[in-house]
């Protein structure tokens, strides 16, 4: 009797989870995979095959865009790590107890504002008639308005900005757990600042580094708004291709293939990253 009740309550608890994951995550993704294998012959006549993927390979624009998105996202991840690590270390280890929480909240500030508004802010700062161009003219560094938008550097900067806190939060939480005595011991044993960083701090922070990098890479590669608004028409981000195939050209079959490729590509990069650093998905992403 008691066992039956336990089983029943487990099933009842499982039901929302199962409905959510099955109906909104698994079946839709299997669905776009199946759709990506479908080729249109004529009205309501289809055949199944790898045609959409072959088309992708035959058109250099498509796979160039994917490679470009991947490599730029990788660059964004590295930059976010390099810029964010000192900040995270400062929050976790250098700042005093009181200012610690405040600094951490400040880091989360951009999360509270829509990506659209953040990007809008960057546009106002960086465009030809924008604040930065005007400021540089006033102090005499440039003598006519300069357009800072619509180039790769700006897109990368905008993405680094957008994903920054997803790097900082896991870094702070791992570094927080590090005993100061470890660093102290490293110095006492005669290590230089650099040695201590390389041999003690970075290995300790590795789970945080990997977790942050995975999330940041996925977010950057999957982002849509920042590249199209800051990069303009020529940003050639892969999600833009997906949107284009789906909504503008109404070519769902190849759009689905593109979507699946992006998912596969980013998963492979993440998997490689995990293998290279010897971490597992369960211990990094699922932990926090």
């Amino acid at each position: 009797m008691d066992k039956d009740i336990k089983r029943l309550s487990l099933i009842l608890l499982m039901a929302p989870f199962a409905l959510w994951i099955l109906l909104l995550i698994i079946i839709p993704h299997v669905g776009i995979f199946l759709l990506s294998l479908r080729e249109k012959i004529s009205y309501k006549e289809f055949t199944y095959g790898l045609g959409n993927y072959i088309e992708f390979l035959n058109e250099p624009i498509y796979w160039n865009t994917l490679l470009r998105t991947g490599s730029m996202s990788l660059l964004v991840t590295i930059l976010a790590l390099l810029i964010g690590f000192p900040v995270a270390y400062y929050i976790a280890k250098v700042a005093r107890k009181k200012s610690k929480g405040a600094l951490f909240l400040l880091c989360l500030l951009p999360l509270w504002v829509s990506e659209l508004i953040r990007t809008f802010g960057w546009i106002l700062l960086l465009r030809e008639t924008g604040v930065v161009s005007g400021f540089l003219q006033t102090i005499g560094i440039i003598d006519q308005p300069v357009e800072f938008l619509y180039n790769d550097v700006t897109v990368i900067m905008g993405l680094v900005y957008t994903v920054m806190l997803f790097m900082i939060v896991p870094l702070v939480s791992t570094l927080d757990g590090m005993d100061d005595a470890m660093v102290e011991a490293g110095y006492n044993l005669g290590g230089s600042g650099f040695t201590v960083l390389r041999r003690i701090i970075i290995p300790y922070a590795m789970p945080g580094i990997v977790a942050g990098s995975i999330v940041v890479f996925m977010l950057a590669a999957g982002s849509y708004l920042t590249p199209i608004l800051l990069g303009g028409k020529n940003s050639s981000w892969f999600t833009e291709q997906i949107y284009d195939q789906f909504i503008t050209r109404y070519n769902w079959e190849s759009g689905a293939a593109f979507g699946f490729l992006l998912l596969a590509f980013t998963s492979i990069v993440v998997w490689l990253g995990l293998r290279l650093t010897g971490q597992s998905l369960a211990t990094t992403v699922a932990k926090d």
Partner: peptide
């Protein structure tokens, strides 16, 4: 363990792809 990872996965799927897959279904 596997189901727990499955629970976390939606957070790392690009939003555009979540959108289109639900639209298609």
């Amino acid at each position: 363990g596997v189901l727990y990872i499955l629970m976390v996965v939606p957070l790392v799927i690009p939003g555009v792809i979540l959108g289109i897959s639900i639209l298609v279904l």
